[in-house]
């Protein structure tokens, strides 16, 4: 029955960054480190590194919640094909 048991793994659905149409681009200069984007990222793909945010593009699905919640407009959603 070992095949019925799963263990914690990042990327259980693979590199979900491939799902992305829009990519969140983060502008550190506009950021006030409120961490709302970190709290509200549904994918848990935003990390806080040394008090600053860092987006894990391997898994970020590009939903855009972070850009919407950011009061400082420090995250902009840009089409992947325009990058």
């Amino acid at each position: 029955m070992e095949c019925m048991i799963a263990r914690p793994s990042k990327g259980s659905a693979g590199k979900t960054g491939l799902w992305r149409t829009f990519k969140p681009i983060y502008d550190e200069n506009k950021c006030n480190n409120c961490l709302l984007c970190w709290l509200y990222c549904p994918e848990n793909a935003i990390d806080v590194v040394d008090g600053k945010i860092s987006i894990d593009y391997d898994y970020c699905k590009g939903c855009g919640v972070c850009a919407k919640i950011c009061a400082k407009k420090a995250i902009e959603m840009v089409r992947e094909d325009e990058l």
Binding site: P42, E43, N44, D56, G62
Partner: peptide, 19 residues
């Protein structure tokens, strides 16, 4: 900061359950 929901799962984009 510890994550109990790991990134790269099958939730839809913007999924409320994931939140």
């Amino acid at each position: 900061k510890e994550k109990f929901l790991l990134p790269g799962n099958t939730s839809c984009q913007g999924c409320p359950h994931a939140l």
